[in-house]
Design a protein around this nucleic acid. Structure first.
Length: 560
DNA sequence: GCTGCCGGAA
């Protein structure tokens, strides 16, 4: 019995008095090969095999205590009391109890859903050590958790060390994760491995891969996968075909997509509402209104009921075209088709009114949606915030922003960016910085847009030094500057008649790998002219024009 | 216990 020797080297993970000594944070893994756990060893220890050489502290089996603890564990997990569940599991493992795998899997799922994958992994570890046997669902839940929290490498590592064979769901979860991260090549390698291990891909597998193939290599390549799918005896379903229709549309071949849609029944698969919605969206975005309306009629005629999304697609594009009246008509006709408008139905209308600066109509729209029981969401509020700032009611926007939390809708990055930009534009950078601090305390990380607004605001107020300071803070925050931000500073320096420094900054900008834009040059030319260096300005202008960096027309308003 | 595919907004 090689694997059991030498027993005296095995550290006991169980202290002799569990009541006093806490569970050690780091335990030596006592696993010799897959499936040999501490409890297995314990069982062996109590049998003749080991002749009593192995002592595992006070640990011994206690089925009654296990039953009781498992029932408690199940209750805790059901009540969502994850931390208490974990504590109980630790105590159980400690006294050598064997937990039920079902509540443990739920506990893992709970931690994963909360984004606490490290805790979930701790649960899995305890389960494996205790001698309970995690099944494929347990591993799939953990792998899915890793994938959702953006840890595909941990998912792959777990796949490699699973003590039960992975199934098609295991692989599909990882395929999805890899494809989302544009690692199609890795996914295809894994497909080979999957086939070699004798695990048969299913319709999910191929649909995931076909979708990624459409995005990465085009529909042409994806069609080859569809052929392979057929060859493997796996029948595509409506989702598979929808993915392909979407791919064809994205490549701008709408008519071909329509032919594909019409051919679907001959492939033994009827298109569903999503198939139609994909085509409808494509028709709308290419301005084919007549076709879109005809398709809606076709759907209804074919007995394919339109969904809220169908109407929302129409409303969205009507609003973009400024046809708010027609959009309202569509909205009002939704109930006839058994559809209740949601926030995505109202938001484009609200946005349309805001864009036309018809704030009263926008507010009216908001009131209608609320009176019909449709709660405004963060997009609704962001739309209003944008509009308020635009019409100069920044103070009202600030007030609304501060009330969002109490309206059950927490502000997001865009909400803060909108108001910070509004404040910066009216010269109230002080309040803007206050909001910057506030958003940070809420765990929202400012992005390039946040900083661009602040830098531009300071520059405009003539506080170029402060603007440059913020510019550096932004870089310390790990955010790469963009041309817009640099241009604001260059403009600020030029206005302060510090054109030489503006030129230095321009050089820094280039060395930072930030590509100057046409504005960068027009600002510099204007700056030179402003400082009375008309000749240099004209020289630079003609140089840049001959290089094609600056168009003559864009300098017409510049007084040189 | 029950994991993994498609369509809509600022």
């Amino acid at each position: 019995m090689d694997l059991l020797a030498p027993p005296n080297l095995l550290p006991s993970p169980f202290p002799s008095n569990p009541k006093i000594i806490p569970v050690p944070k780091v335990r030596v893994r006592v696993r010799f090969s897959t499936g040999v756990s501490i409890n297995r060893l314990r069982t062996l220890a109590s049998s003749k095999t080991l002749n009593g050489h192995l002592t595992l502290g006070s640990a011994h089996q206690d089925p009654d205590a296990d039953r009781e603890d498992n029932q408690r564990l199940q209750r805790l997990v059901r009540n969502g009391d994850l931390e208490e569940g974990l504590k109980l599991l630790e105590r159980m493992a400690f006294r050598g109890g064997i937990p039920d795998i079902i509540p443990c899997t739920s506990l893992i799922r709970g931690f994963c859903r909360a984004g606490r994958t490290a805790k979930a992994a701790r649960v899995l570890d305890l389960v494996e050590r205790s001698g309970a046997s995690p099944d494929v669902i347990t591993f799939n839940v953990m792998i899915s958790g890793y994938c959702k929290s953006g840890e595909p490498e941990l998912a792959l590592r777990l796949l490699r060390r699973m003590s039960v064979p992975p199934d098609v769901v295991t692989y599909n979860t990882i395929f999805q994760c890899l494809c989302e991260r544009r690692k199609l090549d890795k996914a295809l390698e894994l497909l080979d491995e999957m086939l070699q291990r004798g695990c048969a891909p299913d319709v999910f597998t191929y649909t995931i891969l076909i979708e990624a193939m459409c995005k990465d290599s085009g529909v042409g390549q994806a069609m080859k996968l569809l052929d392979e799918m057929h060859a493997k005896g796996c029948k595509p379903d409506v989702v598979t075909y929808n993915v392909i229709i979407n791919g064809i549309c994205k490549e701008g071949r709408l008519d071909e997509a329509i032919r594909f849609l019409n051919a679907m029944p001959s492939y033994g698969c009827n298109p569903n509402v999503i198939s139609h919605n994909i085509i409808l969206r494509s028709m709308c975005s290419t301005g084919r209104w007549m076709d879109a309306e005809k398709l809606l009629a076709d759907m209804v005629g074919k007995g394919c009921a339109p969904s809220v999304v169908t109407f929302n697609i129409l409303i969205n594009f009507l609003c973009r075209k400024g046809l708010l009246g027609r959009a309202m008509d569509v909205l009002e006709r939704m109930p006839e088709h058994g559809c209740t408008p949601n926030s995505l139905s109202y938001n484009p209308l609200l946005h349309g009114f805001c864009k036309e600066k018809k704030m009263d109509r926008a507010i009216e729209c908001l009131e209608v949606m609320v009176s019909r029981g449709c709660y405004p969401d963060i997009v609704t509020y962001n739309t209003l915030l944008t509009a308020l700032c635009k019409v100069g009611k920044v103070d009202v926007a600030v007030e609304l922003l501060s009330q969002l939390g109490s309206k059950g809708c927490n502000p997001v990055l865009i909400s803060y960016n909108t108001v910070i930009d509004g404040l910066s534009k009216v010269g109230n950078t002080e309040k803007a910085f206050e909001l910057l601090r506030e958003m940070k305390t809420k765990g929202l990380h400012p992005d390039i847009i946040t900083y661009a607004s602040l830098v531009a605001g300071l520059s405009r107020e003539g506080k170029v030094r402060e603007a440059i300071k913020v510019f550096h803070e932004m870089q310390d925050d790990g955010i790469r500057p963009n041309a817009i931000t640099c241009n604001s500073i260059i403009l600020g320096l030029c206005k302060a008649r510090q054109t030489d420094q503006a030129i230095d900054f321009y050089a820094d900008m280039v060395s930072l790998g930030c590509m100057p834009t046409e504005s960068t040059y027009t600002i510099l030319i204007e700056g030179l002219a402003y400082e009375g260096m008309s000749e240099e300005a004209l020289e630079l202008l003609s140089e840049l024009c001959s290089r094609g960096v600056v168009k003559k027309t864009s300098m017409q308003n510049v007084k040189v």
